[in-house]
Amino acid sequence: MTAQAVAKEMIRHGRGGSIAIIASMSGTIANRGLICSAYNASKAGLIQLARNLASEWGPHGIRVNTLSPGYIVTAMVEALFEQYPERRRDWPTQNMLGKLSKPEEYRGAAVFLISDASSFMTGSDMRIDGGHAAW
């Protein structure tokens, strides 16, 4: 609904623009050892939604892409580690960099997606997962 509202204004002003939707690496991989099919399906849905919106709104100069982070240490994840301490140990071993990410590691990618630096990029998913999905 937010993307629709934003696109409507972009079309009204006739200048195009860029929409970046936050998805997840979990939209393209199955998370080892986790029962999270509803979460993964919702993130896969966001990636596909962005592709379709890109095709619909491209003629109006509107670009739509997704940003798909890997495991991020947030307050919610810290609370999860309290309940499942083995995840703090195991998750970093599941990517090539051997660590978990921090929210600030996605700033540059987000700026890129909404700036003119990505002016020929639409319908794409930018997965930043420390190499998790490359194995």
Rank of each mutant, 00 (worst) to 15 (best):
40 N>D: 14
112 F>A: 06
44 A>C: 09
4 Q>R: 15
56 E>M: 07
7 A>T: 01
98 G>L: 02
42 S>W: 03
65 N>W: 11
33 G>S: 08
18 S>H: 05
117 A>F: 09
5 A>L: 11
130 G>V: 04
27 G>F: 00
60 H>M: 02
114 I>A: 12
31 N>C: 02
45 G>H: 12
31 N>P: 00
50 A>G: 02
5 A>Y: 03
115 S>V: 06
61 G>M: 05
48 Q>L: 14
61 G>L: 04
128 I>L: 15
13 H>I: 00
8 K>M: 05
91 W>A: 06
98 G>S: 05
69 P>I: 11
119 S>R: 15
80 L>E: 12
122 T>M: 11
104 E>Y: 03
63 R>S: 03
108 G>L: 06
93 T>Y: 01
53 L>T: 00
61 G>A: 04
3 A>G: 04
40 N>Q: 15
119 S>H: 13
125 D>F: 06
41 A>P: 03
56 E>V: 07
103 P>R: 02
122 T>K: 11
116 D>E: 14
21 I>Y: 07
117 A>R: 08
42 S>K: 02
92 P>A: 05
79 A>T: 10
6 V>G: 03
95 N>V: 12
22 I>E: 05
31 N>L: 05
32 R>E: 15
100 L>F: 08
57 W>Y: 09
17 G>E: 07
19 I>K: 08
24 S>P: 03
81 F>T: 04
108 G>E: 11
61 G>Y: 02
30 A>L: 10
17 G>D: 09
127 R>T: 15
115 S>Y: 11
12 R>E: 04
45 G>A: 15
54 A>N: 01
62 I>Q: 00
42 S>Q: 02
126 M>Y: 13
111 V>G: 07
99 K>E: 07
15 R>W: 06
125 D>E: 12
73 V>E: 02
68 S>W: 00
38 A>T: 14
17 G>T: 07
20 A>Y: 02
89 R>A: 15
4 Q>W: 09
90 D>H: 12
86 E>G: 12
68 S>R: 01
95 N>Y: 12
120 F>I: 03
74 T>Y: 10
41 A>Q: 08
